[in-house]
Design a protein around this nucleic acid. Structure first.
Lengths: 253, 253
DNA sequence: TCTTGCAGGATTGTTCAACAATCCCTACGC
DNA sequence: GCGTAGGGATTGTTGAACAATCCTGCAAGA
């Protein structure tokens, strides 16, 4: 729908490959400028942990820092609200949400459903998958391994995220991509509560590689089964770390 | 301060049941008034077909009709954009999206994944399901049957939608509810392209009842299988009607 | 001592008017 | 006929202003 050209004359443009890349570049430049740019900055601040869960975002403060008007800033807030990175409280302001164990379970349930289905569905359309389709996954695996060698564990987490985002991307579903983006953004919110990212991310570097190799070998059914268990284990890891944190700092004030 | 008072800053109140219901009521009253009220009106206009796909929503026009400021109207636009009921085109305005067959396939793929998983997952937590949990589904089934008797086919479609929304609700997942709301809203967008709603909705009245009875009998596995085929058939029906329409009116202007 | 009520200040919700940037359409010149 | 410039309309963004609401602290009363 978004790619529908202005001139409707060529109704069925059999969108070629290069057209898609050009369209992507244009879309990147289009960037609703002020509001989206402000949202980008805030998004990074939140996902990188500069803004901790529970923090309030003052409007007047941020208008000065971001150099945008209050109205534009509010539109940026709306954008991030619908990504799950902020929550509105009427007449009180916007806050970075504080997720609890129930949210972890909810998020992982959806991840399992979506990701496992994508992998399992690859079997049906195996022939039509163009070569090099798995390249982004391979890059992510190597990026994670490199970051781990350099002891940069947050970077490992990021590469891990991108691996899963690219995994979902194999389904060619715009809506799945959007949903996954939202889910992973919320998940990143959880990571900052965890003190030891190494124990959290380390086991999954090798598992990501294993998953990638199974996909490359077209063993989709086994890949789906592995991924299912993978996500169950990851969920348990986060829940454990989360409960430790909860016990350690019940009174933050 | 620091008087060991009774207040304790109430950090971890083990939220009791009645507290939750009160909180729900409060949330309902909160309604960000102007922007959300405007969005409600627009949402109805779109889902009921007053605003056809492809139509542009002029800002100045709507500020007069809805009696809100341009900024507030834009916030309403944002709300509906993230529900999938409107699309922004930079510097051109907001439009009612025109979905194509590719979108139908995408939407139904997600519906199948989510709904079937919910039904299948009910087996695991069957004991903890409180009595009367299926009542909303039952109401929707009867509402559809009543509307069909009165030849009110759009109402049948609405009841059908609510049936599936309530079905997803059985999973107790806030994020699944939100996703489903968005998916069904987009689906409603498609219905207005279809000339004969009767043929589209009629077969599923009985199937909804059958599904409900399977759930009531706790035959979750069979219900999941039925639902899967159900959604495949529904997808084919929409695709067929959609192609007819596409052939009949390629040049709308 | 504890609760209740009430100002005060601060923050958000909403409106308005204005200007800049961009798009669409038309007319002009070659 | 075609590319290009201009005009008009629409959107993007800003800043200030006012109303509504929330939070804090203090004082009055039980």
């Amino acid at each position: 729908m978004s790619t529908g050209g202005a001139e409707d004359t060529g109704s069925d443009v059999g969108r070629q490959a290069w057209l898609r890349t050009v369209a992507a570049d244009v879309a990147r430049l289009d960037r609703s400028s002020s509001a989206e740019r402000a949202a980008d900055i805030l998004r990074r601040s939140i996902t990188e942990g500069a803004l901790p869960p529970g923090a309030q975002l003052s409007e007047v403060e941020l208008t000065e820092v971001l150099e945008v008007s209050r109205n534009t800033l509010r539109e940026a807030f709306r954008l991030l609200t619908h990504e799950g990175l902020l929550v509105y409280k009427l007449h009180r302001g916007v806050f970075v949400p504080e997720l609890d164990e129930h949210d972890v379970i909810d998020l992982y349930r959806l991840r399992r459903v979506l990701e496992v289905d994508v992998v399992r569905g690859l079997a049906d359309r195996d022939p039509e998958l163009p070569a090099g389709r798995l390249d982004p996954l391979h890059d992510d695996v190597e990026a994670a391994e490199a970051a781990a060698s350099a002891d940069r564990w947050p970077a490992v987490g990021t590469a891990n995220m991108r691996f899963h985002q690219h995994l979902i991307g194999l389904a060619d579903s715009a809506r799945m991509d959007a949903m996954t983006g939202r889910l992973l953004a919320e998940l990143r919110l959880l990571f900052h509560v965890i003190a030891t990212p190494r124990e959290l991310h380390e086991p999954y570097i090798a598992r990501n590689r294993g998953l990638f190799e199974l996909l490359e070998a077209r063993k989709y059914e086994q890949a789906a089964a592995d991924l299912h268990q993978y996500l169950l284990d990851s969920e348990q890891g986060i829940l454990a770390a989360f409960r430790d944190k909860g016990l350690r700092a019940p009174r933050t004030t």
